[in-house]
Structures are given as structure tokens and as C-alpha cells.
Amino acid sequence: MTRSLPSAVTVRAAAKINLHLGVGGVRDDGFHPLTTVYQAVGLCDDVTAFPAAELEVELSATDWIDVGGIPLDEGNLAVRAARLLGDLHGRALTGRLVLEKSIPVAGGLAGGSADAAAALVALDRLHDLHTSDDDLLRLAADLGSDVPFALVGGTALGTGRGEVVEAVADVGTWWWVIVPSREGLSTPEVYRHFDRLRPDADPTPPDAEVLLGALRTGQPVSLARALHNDLQEPAIDLRPALGELIEQGEAEGALRGLVSGSGPTVVFLCESADHARDLAGAMMRSGHEVVLVANGAVAGSHVVPAHV
């Protein structure tokens, strides 16, 4: 008997923050070796795949996110994900992909990578392809350094360009206040500025042992002391307001402020949910229009009931 295919599949994928981002000197191929510790936090995009005659993408977003600069063609990672998945199975995949965005665009939180990971899972389920986890991870690595982690979620060590991920021990529940920026910051430019500031950077990135040890304690104060981002200096040098924002959040009581990835989003670690809500309120009263509260770690890309 022929199995009927679903009428729609919705997959949720979480934003990531880098608890540790150690960057090595640029290689001959233009990439930087990384040692990073990712954490998926409860700020998510949903991607819903509907049957359609062609492959198409639609966008919607919360009112403070500008999606005007997001491409709907091959420049969109979700479209590229569909193409790669189709190539793997020897067929052109079709479907209407509706991306509902709550992750800031160009914010250092890997929203595009989350959408790509979600698209892989959604189209696999929509077309009943039964793609293996290993194949999905391989396709994800071809799409970008952060995409494999968006599939896996939780807390994980990333090596290589960040695309080789391994789950790590994490006994805590961590609370974050997230302050995005309406103006993105170019990741390639931040890396180029890292090279300008550190022309003699060690080709081996700093290891994450201190951070991994802090995760095993489950203590927010220990984690705050261990947070590390080699891209924070170049990001702040390019946009000094980020440094001022970190100082403000810490003055308001955050355990630690940190640029997320290449920025410009800044995240603040808090002691508890109540502490995070209090800090978020203080930041909003000081004039920040968008301040978010999220916990971590949360699951990677997973199917949720389709919207009615």
C-alpha cells in the first residue's frame, strides 16, 4: 500500500551562541581554524514545508526583524539545503518553504544556518526520504560551519571550521538576556579585522578546557568567568557601541556580557530566570527597543505540529 505523504511538516531550529570561540590564524585556503563551544538557546525559527509544484520560499518575521535583505533564491541557505538534499537522492525536490523568523538576521546567532538545518529535516520528512543522520550532517557541513550544530543542538564542541560537532557534558540550565542590533555586522569583515589586529595569531586556536570545566559545575558564576570570544575585540573595534552595551549590561547586574559570534548581538549571562527578566526590564527602560530572554541548552532541529 502506498504511504500518503504529509500535507505539511514544521521544523523548529534554535539560535546558537558561542560560549567559547577560539580563532586560529588564517589558513592558506582563507579559513580560520576554530575551537568553539556552541549552545542552542530558546530563540527559534520555524520552517514549514508544504507540497508544491516548484521549490519556493516565503518569509515572515516578528515585527522588529527586517527580512528585506534576505534572498529568496539560491542565495538563501534553505534553498541550497533543498538542492543538496535533492542531489543526494537523485531528484529535484519541490516544496513551499515558509520561514517564520524570530532569530535576528546577520546577528551572530546563526539564524540562516538554523533555517538551512530545519529545511533539510522538513523536506526529508515531507518527501519521506529517510535520509540518515550521517548524511544530513554531511550535507549540513557542506552548507556552512554552523549548520551541523543547528541540527544537533544542546551544547557541543565544534572544531575544524566549527562544522565538526561533538556533544559535551552540560549539567546547568542557563539564562540569557539577548540584545540584538537592527544593523547587521559582516562576518567576513570581522574575520578580516581579526587578521589585521592579530597578524601573528597562532594557527592553533585556544582550547576550550576552562569553559568545558565550567559547564560541568552547573554554576553560572563559573561559566561567566570562562566565557571567551576571540572575535569580540575586532567586532567592538569595528562598532564601539558594542563595548558600551556590554559595560551597560554588566553595570545593570549581568554576570557577564559577550558579543555572540561575530556580532553584533550581545548576550548577557544571568543567575536565574528572575534575574534575566529583571535585567531585560532594566535594559528596556534604558532605551533598548528589543531585549529578549532565552534559556539554554535546548534541542536541535525537530519536528513540531504544523500551524493550523
Rank of each mutant, 00 (worst) to 15 (best):
S145T: 09
D146Y: 10
D146H: 07
P148N: 07
F149I: 07
A150P: 01
L151H: 08
V152D: 05
G153D: 04
G158D: 13
G158R: 10
G160F: 09
R161V: 15
R161N: 12
G162F: 13
G162Q: 09
E163T: 12
V164Q: 13
V164L: 14
V164H: 13
E166A: 15
V168K: 08
D170Y: 03
V171N: 01
G172K: 09
T173R: 15
W174M: 02
W174R: 03
W174V: 01
W176A: 01
V177R: 07
V177H: 03
V179D: 07
L185H: 06
L185P: 01
Y191Q: 13
Y191M: 10
H193Y: 15
H193M: 03
D195R: 11
R196D: 12
R196S: 12
L197F: 08
R198C: 12
P199G: 07
P199L: 06
D202H: 02
T204V: 15
T204P: 01
D207S: 14
E209Q: 15
E209D: 15
V210I: 13
L211E: 09
L212F: 11
L212N: 12
A214L: 02
A214E: 04
R216N: 03
G218H: 02
Q219R: 13
S222M: 11
S222P: 00
L223Q: 04
A224Q: 02
R225P: 01
L227R: 02
L227P: 03
D230L: 12
D230W: 10
D230E: 15
L231D: 04
E233K: 10
P234H: 11
P234W: 05
P234R: 01
I236P: 00
R239A: 13
P240C: 11
L242A: 05
G243A: 02
G243L: 06
G243Q: 08
E244H: 12
E244V: 11
L245M: 14
I246Y: 03
E247Q: 14
E247K: 11
E250Y: 02
A251C: 03
A251L: 08
E252H: 06
G253K: 05
A254G: 08
G257Q: 02
V259N: 06
V259T: 09
G261C: 10
S262L: 14
S262R: 14
P264A: 03
T265R: 06
V267H: 09
V267E: 00
F268N: 03
F268I: 05
F268W: 06
C270L: 00
S272L: 07
A273F: 00
D274G: 03
D274W: 03
H275E: 03
H275K: 03
R277C: 01
L279F: 09
A280V: 00
G281D: 07
G281T: 00
A282N: 09
